[in-house]
């Protein structure tokens, strides 16, 4: 369990990084605000409208595609560790698994989900 000490240090450093950076920035930077500076920054363009608009359902499909292939990646990892011990059966199993998911990807492709309009 001591091998997780690095993880704890990493998490602590990650949590400390944001407040320390903001504190240092607050100490170093000059403070001369005016109206244009205080406007919400959006890629350098004047922002208009509310940020909480209703998004198109297409974005949900991108998220779902990401989830599906994320799960596939998770299954690939223990398979890659054990593939030498599993032999050809393991290869066939993974090929079937990926083939079924590729059917979904092809369906999405044919339906034009992957097009970025």
């Amino acid at each position: 369990m001591d091998s997780y000490l690095e993880v704890v240090i990493f998490v602590a450093a990650g949590f400390l990084f944001v407040p320390v950076t903001m504190l240092v920035g607050k100490l170093l930077r000059p403070h001369r605000p005016y109206a244009e500076k205080l406007v919400t920054y959006e890629c350098g363009e004047p922002s208009h409208g509310s940020a909480q608009i209703r998004y198109h359902a297409r974005y949900y499909l991108f998220g779902l595609l990401f989830l599906v292939f994320d799960i596939e990646t998770v299954f690939l990892y223990p398979w890659a560790v054990m593939v030498r011990h599993l032999g050809p059966i393991g290869l066939i199993e993974m090929v079937v698994f990926i083939a079924v998911l590729v059917v979904g990807l092809v369906y999405a492709w044919c339906k034009g989900v992957l097009e970025w309009v």
Binding site: Y60, L61, L64, L65, V68, I71, E72, F75, V96, F97, I98, V100, L101, V103, G104, Y107, A108, K111, V113
Partner: peptide, 14 residues
């Protein structure tokens, strides 16, 4: 079967 479930979710959402 997990791959079939994932496929069903994907096709259903599409």
């Amino acid at each position: 079967v997990a791959s079939v479930v994932l496929l069903a979710a994907l096709v259903g959402a599409i």
